[in-house]
Every structure is written in C-alpha cells, then in structure tokens.
Write a protein that binds this DNA or RNA. Structure first.
Lengths: 245, 245
DNA sequence: CGCATCGTTGATCAAGCTCAAGCCGCGTGG
DNA sequence: CCACGCGGCTTGAGCTTGATCAACGATGCG
C-alpha cells in the first residue's frame, strides 16, 4: 500500500460514487485512501474473513463468488473499473459473505471500515451514492434470480453474454464484441448451469455463425440474435404458431 | 391517508430504520409521515409504476413479487412489521421493479421521494440505517440465488420454511410453529419450482410427521429435521457413505 | 347451493446433469 | 526445441429430477 499520488485525484473525482461531492470532501476522502495492487488469480478477500476494507476498482476485472458447503461455486457478479467492492458489508461488521478474486491484474483504492462509516456520517451524499450503487446491483440480482427461476438455460446464457458486453465494453466497441478472460466454467457459474451445457450451447451458436468461440474468449457477431434468443418464449413442440395473443 | 397521531411516535422510534436518531430528527420524520391502510389482496404499488413513495410496515404481511413477460411470478421477499418497503428504488427515480401486495390487511407509514431524499441528506444516520437494511435483504437474496443454483427443490423448500419461521414469528412462539396465509403456490414462487412439486413435498413431510399441512397453512413440528434436510448433500444413489471428508 | 380457490395425485416426458473419454493449445522445463 | 502436462474445451450416452398435463377432492365464502 502506497499513499495516493496527487495525479490520482482526477480519477477519483470521476467515480460515480463521488458524484456531487465538494472539492474539500473529495480531498478528505482521498487522504484516507490507499492504493492497492492485486495480481491476477489472487484475492481481494475471502468469504468468511472479517470485512475490514472496501474498494473502488480502478483497473482490472474482479470475480465475486460464493461457494457452498458442497464446494460448488456461484458467481454473483463480475466487476470492472469504477465499480465498488464490498460497500454493503463494510457497514455492518459482519464477515465477507463471498470472495473477490482478480481475474486480471487489478489496481484499486481502499478504505477501511471506520473511515468509511466516518466519511459517510460527514457527507450524507456519499452514503446516498453508495446506496444508489447498491440499488443497481440489487436490481440486477433480482432480475437474475427471476431468470434463474423462470427461464431455460439457453436464454440465461444469452442474457449473461448481453449483460457482460454492456457492462464491460460500455457499448462503444466495434463488432465483433469481444469477451476476454471468460471461461465456459465462469459462464456456467453465472447462469446456474454446468460447464458442459454451456459448451454445447456455445458450439451450437458458433455453428449458426452467431459468435466465434475460443479458449477463454468469445467474439459476438450477432448481438441482436442473442437478444431474440433471450426473449424467445417457447415452452412447446417445435414449429409452434408464434403465439396467438 | 390521515396525519399520524402522536401516539404513533412511540412505535416509530422503535423501528430499526430510525436507530440512533435524535428526538428532534424523529419528530421531523414523523411530521412528514402519513399513515396508510392497505386491505388484503390490494397493492401498495405495481411493477412499472413510478416510484414515488416508500413505506415502513407497521402491521400485516406483504408479498414482493416480480412478474416476467410470460406471466410467471417470482416472489422476491415477504415482509412483516418493521420492514421497509421500496427504500432502494425511491432514491433513483426509476419505476418500481416489482409489485407489493398485501396478503393480510396492512397498516404502514409512508413518505414520498422528495422528503425521503431530503431527510437522508439532513441525517446521514438515516441513510446509513437504510443501507444496512438493504444490505440484509441483499445478503438474503444472494443466498437464495446460490441455493437456486446449486440445491435441489426439496432443500430449497425446507430452507424457505425455516426462513419464514425465523422472520415471521421471531422465534419465540411455541411448537408447532405456525405459518399462516401461505399457499403452496407462494412457496413454489419463493423457491423456483411448481405448485405440484411443493404439494408432493409437503404431503411426504406430513406422512413423516414432520409437519401438519392445511389450506393456506403449515404447522411445523420438527424444525430440526427440516434443517437436516436443507443441509443434506446427497448427489448419489441411496445408501451412500455419509461423505469421507 | 354453487362457485372459486386451493390442494392432491398419477402418468408422462424432456431439459439438462452426470460421467466418461478424448482433443487442443499453451507454457514450462528438460 | 521438443515433449510433457495442465487447464480449458468438446462431445456422446445414459439417466434423474422435476415440469407438465389432467382429473379430481376439499374447503370456504357469498
């Protein structure tokens, strides 16, 4: 951990978490921040450890996952730059309910529990922003929960890909949209299915020219088609009238 | 909507949401509150409406559910007295992402969006408490998501019952623990399965003397056994060595 | 009494999980 | 530079869980 150099203040101010704060407040916040580097395949924290720190991710990709007694993993979220790690849990001093692993080399700002609470009590705006970010995550999780309850595997995988493209590349990138450092296993753990099923689905989509599949990467050619797959409701024998309603 | 009578201030102050606030702050909050009554089978709000109001539930049971394009419902949470409704969404002025229906006659305090944001900016403590409550819900949802991903139906139903007993009756009640106003359909929508499967499971449990099943109610006799069912990992043919590890 | 809502149970069937076997590509060390 | 091994991926065969459909029973309410 090294003290944050001045040049970083710029970057800090751009984060959604700090929207609407005054110069002075930003300065205080920045003074209490430390910069951490977390190399690929190592952990920000493990499930069960005391939640002492929260992070604002500057560079890299982070996988938030929970593991159950049987050893099965579930991916709750993938984070990218600008996202906030462990805001929720750091307020109540419960243990981390899940683990955060760097999928690529990461750089993040870190604050500890006490300063976090203190800062929020000083500037309500910070608490409100935090709540807002939690809200977004909450909505996403709610939707994924509904999908897991009601949709078939193929649809869920399609949605997962769409979601990843939106949040990772922030849209702008050219077709074919790339998804890197993403294993079939990851996709399976995101959608509540198995490695095997994901593999079959990807193969089938590749044959249809929908995407190009590679080791730890996919390149999506026809996003629109994925969308129609995701929204396609057909609990019925092949060749069904599109739906009477 | 009627102005809140003074006698209610007592009750207000007990809510976890208002923990650690000063007398003065409580008074302000109370002044902006209105009391609403929502009869059984009617809605606090519907999915898709603009989120204008948030609620603190005083009496009754509320079902938070989301409905998908196909018309399938999913129950995200059941609320009881002291719980907070729609805190998350009222900050961002997005539409309600789900519907809230009274399963029994309800009484609740209500605040509108503007006053909520205003109050939180005034007393950070309120924002922090709100975040804390959201955090709890978030953790629950995360766990249910993992369960839905990794566990079999029977386990999920067992867990759902356990959870309901804890949060409804707050423990203290005598065996047999009662669960009222709870249909098989509700249980199915909570656990991501069908009415039929839940019915079969309940029948089987009843035969084993684990509980007593009735119309819209269950009386749990052996909570402990439910726990062992919930934790029972056996992805293997009957009569399997308990697990070597 | 009749209707609506809720619940039960059997028969059937398919989606997707599991297991097994083998391929491919890459990085490491001999 | 090659070979080896590991991590990731593919594909087939078989099987299980739990969904679906259908018919009927029970309960309560107006």
């Amino acid at each position: 951990m090294t003290p944050t150099p001045d040049s970083d203040l710029q970057l800090l101010t751009q984060a959604a978490l700090f929207d609407g704060l005054t110069e002075a407040q930003l300065h205080t916040i920045q003074q209490h921040a430390t910069l951490v580097r977390v190399p690929r395949r190592t952990f920000f924290f493990h499930q069960g450890e005391a939640a002492t720190t929260f992070y604002l991710l500057r560079e890299g990709q982070v996988r938030l996952s929970q593991i159950n007694p049987e050893g099965k993993q579930v991916i709750i979220h993938l984070f990218g730059p600008g996202d906030v790690l462990a805001v929720i849990v750091v307020l109540s001093n419960a243990p981390y309910p899940l683990s955060a692993e760097a999928i690529t080399d990461c750089v993040a700002w870190a604050w500890n529990r006490e300063t976090a609470v203190h800062l929020m009590e000083q500037c309500p705006r910070l608490a409100i922003n935090g709540m807002d970010m939690v809200a977004g995550r909450f909505l996403e999780l709610q939707n994924r929960y509904r999908e897991l309850s009601t949709e078939r595997v193929e649809q869920r995988v399609a949605r997962a890909l769409i979601r990843l493209i939106h949040q990772r590349n922030g849209y702008q990138e050219q077709k074919p949209y790339p998804l890197l450092s993403l294993t079939r296993q990851d996709l399976a753990e995101m959608t509540g299915t198995t490695l095997y099923t994901v593999s079959r689905i990807c193969s089938s989509w590749e044959q249809q020219g929908l995407l190009e599949a590679g080791r730890e990467q996919l390149h999506i050619h026809k996003l629109e088609e994925l969308t129609t797959i995701a929204d396609d409701l057909r609990p019925s024998p092949p060749n069904f009238p599109p739906r009477p309603n």
